[in-house]
Every structure is written in C-alpha cells, then in structure tokens.
C-alpha cells in the first residue's frame, strides 16, 4: 500500500479528516523548508504538499506566484526540491509528500528520470497542475512504474465525461478545486461543495481533498465535514511572506494556524464516515442540483 493510501486508511479508521498544508519549496529561503515541514507535521499536518517553483505559475494567484519568485531567486529547481524531500525523509518515514507544480520542469528532466529520482527521494504523489489526463498517458505510466500516485484536480465545471476519465487515471486522492479562479481567491459556499463532492463520489472511491478558499479554522471545519481532506495553501504562504526573514516567527505563525485547523477538524467530525460515502442513491437529488449550478 502506498504511503498516501495508508495515511488515508489510518485517518478513516480514526474518523478524522486529513489536514494538508501547501508551502512552496525554498520560500523564502531553501534552508527554511525542511524544518518547516517537520514543524507542520508536529502541528497536525497529515500529508504535505510541496510546491515546485515555476517561472510562470498560470493557475496560481499572486500570493503563490510571489512565493515561487522568492524561491527562484535562490535557484530552487526541481532537483533541489527533491533534495529537500530526501532530507525530510531522513527523519519522517510516514508523512506522505506530494509535489505540486507545473509540467515544464518535469518535461525537461524527462518523465522516467523524474519519476525515478522523485521516488528515490521519498516523494509519494505528484500533482502537475497543467497536465490533464488527456495528455498524461506517458506521464502517468512513468509515475506508476516508480509507484508514485498521480494526483488530479477536479473543478466545479468538470463534466461527468471528464470526471470518469480523471477517476480512471487518478491514484492516492483527488483534489477538488472548490472555486472558479486561481489559488487564494475569495469565499466558499459549503452547501455547494458538499453536494458536488457527493456527485464526485459516484465516480471514484478515492479520498476527496478540497482546496482553494480555506483560510481559517472555521472554514476548515465546515469543509472537513464533507471532505476527506482539506488543503490550505495561500493562507499559509501569506504568513510566510509576512514573516519575511524572521524564521522563528514564520514557523510559529504557520504552526499556530495549522494547530487551530487541526483542533477544529477534530472537534467537528465528518457528517458521515468516509467508508460509507462511495456512491449512494440518496445523494442523487443533491448531485443533480449541483450539476445545474456548475454548468
């Protein structure tokens, strides 16, 4: 069983929702990242998404783009991100790490070379924002060969035909982008997300993570009731940006936010145990409602 599958199975057994923080590797300096990853685990993170800096992060908002720019100023390339994961793994054999980034750095390295190196470094999954399943045959095969999980996004506007296609290729978990727009965008309608997740569960039994628009413990708890995982990115990266060169402050504010989210998630268990969620006729009515809203 992959580290990601084992992680979600353990959470399911404990009736807990996964907390997934996102930080950009090397932001604001390369030396900050590995200690920050460890601190986030200590504060209650179940899985870590590590952003791979890219010069043209088209799907990200200004907060994460600036994080990329800070890291790139220190020359943080894909290879250096893998070194960071290797270093993290020396002391943490359990917490899954997912790389999140754009295709071109992987394309330049070569799919097989990348997959082998990432697996050797201790990476568990790869979310390549601009790699849709239609283009991903060779990429997914290379990841599978190295036992890495390809993580895919689902949007509010994803059609059922594409849901089926994504579900067929996805491993580990599926990441539902709860808003139109880019990372760091405004607010979130929980009822709509709840109905939409129920619909997505008709296509996949993989755990569902929800990201985009989760800024505080309250939002995390509300989303945590319907999702298997909540992803928090821009809110953390904003704290890192505000802390500037003050590494102690950065770590403290990031862990405080995560610990608050952890506590809120644990105090507000899921409406239904995740094990009961795959499919279910009872949810069809709500799902149909979402479809009309989403299209």
């Amino acid at each position: 069983m992959s580290r990601i599958a084992a992680c979600f199975e353990g959470l399911r057994a404990a009736g807990r929702t996964a907390l997934i923080p996102f930080v950009t590797a090397g932001d604001p300096r390369p030396a900050v990242t590995v200690p920050l990853m460890r601190a986030m685990v200590a504060a209650g993170a179940d899985l870590i998404e590590l952003g791979v800096p890219f010069s043209d992060p088209m799907a990200d908002g200004p907060v994460i783009q600036r994080a990329s720019e800070r890291a790139l100023r220190h020359g943080v390339s894909l290879r250096r991100v893998l070194e960071m994961v290797r270093s993290f793994r020396e002391q943490d054999a359990q917490t899954p790490v997912v790389l999140m980034g754009y295709l071109n750095p992987i394309e330049v390295m070569g799919y097989e070379t990348f997959a082998t190196a990432a697996a050797a470094a201790g990476v568990d999954g790869v979310l390549t924002v601009d790699m849709p399943p239609e283009e991903a045959t060779g990429y997914a095969a290379a990841l599978a060969e190295a036992d890495l999980d390809p993580i895919f996004l689902i949007a509010p506007t994803t059609t059922d035909a594409r849901l089926a296609r994504i579900a067929a290729m996805a491993r580990g978990f599926v990441y539902y982008v709860s808003l139109k727009g880019v990372t760091g965008a405004a607010s979130l309608d929980v009822a709509v997300v709840t109905a939409r997740l129920a619909h997505i569960r008709r296509f996949t039994s993989l755990p569902l993570g929800v990201g985009f628009g989760i800024k505080d413990a309250r939002a995390a708890a509300r989303i945590g009731r319907c999702a298997d995982a909540v992803v928090v990115g821009s809110a953390l990266v904003s704290l890192i940006e505000a802390a500037g060169d003050d590494e102690a402050r950065c770590r403290q504010e990031v862990t405080t936010l995560l610990a608050g989210m952890r506590a809120a998630l644990d105090a507000s268990p899921a409406d239904t145990p995740a094990a009961d969620r795959a499919g279910g006729e009872a949810r069809d009515e709500k799902a149909a409602e979402t479809r009309s809203q989403a299209t």
Binding site: M58, A59, L103, V129, D130, M131, P132, E134, E135, F152, L153, I154, A155, T157, T158, T159, R162, I166, V177, K180, G181
Partner: peptide
C-alpha cells in the same frame, strides 16, 4: 485534440477545460 504532430495540445489546469 489540437496536436500538430508532437506539439500543441491543451496543457491547462482543470478549471480552464470547460471554457
């Protein structure tokens, strides 16, 4: 699918697929 030989295609985030 918009491929000119090995080039072209549609490499975008899921949110852009529908539009």
């Amino acid at each position: 699918h918009g491929h000119f030989g090995a080039y072209g295609g549609r490499f975008v985030a899921e949110t852009l697929m529908a539009p």
